[in-house]
Amino acid sequence: MPDAANSNVEAQTFDMREDPEGWTVYDTRTDEPARVKGVPQIGLEMEKADDLVDLLNRLAQRAGESFAL
């Protein structure tokens, strides 16, 4: 039986990493910065990046596939 905690991590489409100006939210499949309304999500405060990762992953999970913002 799959472990629910691990399956959530495996399904994570977006994550965050530190960059020179703050934090970047990126697409784990392409390794490119996530874009919201065409704006790359780089140089964010840690809390904002973390909130955005949660939001984008919830939206991706609901959509069940890749989507563009």
Rank of each mutant, 00 (worst) to 15 (best):
G64Q: 12
L55A: 12
P40T: 05
D15S: 15
N8V: 10
P20S: 09
E47S: 05
M16F: 01
I42V: 07
I42M: 09
D50P: 04
Q41T: 02
P2S: 05
L69N: 09
L52I: 06
D51K: 12
E65T: 06
G64K: 04
T30P: 09
G43Y: 02
D15F: 06
A60E: 06
F67K: 11
S66C: 10
L55K: 09
L44M: 14
A68L: 12
G38F: 08
E47D: 09
V39F: 10
E32Q: 15
M1D: 13
G43T: 01
D19V: 00
A4S: 13
G64F: 07
G64Y: 10
D31R: 14
L44I: 06
V53K: 02
D51F: 04
F14S: 01
T13Q: 11
E32W: 09
D3L: 02
A5Y: 05
A11L: 15
M46S: 11
T30C: 09
F14K: 03
R58I: 07
S7I: 00
D50A: 15
R58Q: 06
R29N: 15
V9A: 14
K48W: 05
E47H: 00
S7L: 07
D50M: 10
P33M: 06
G64V: 09
S7M: 12
D31Y: 08
D54H: 13
N57K: 04
Q12W: 06
E21R: 12
Y26K: 00
A34Y: 05
G38N: 08
L44Q: 08
G22N: 02
L52S: 03
R62V: 00
M46W: 13
Q12K: 10
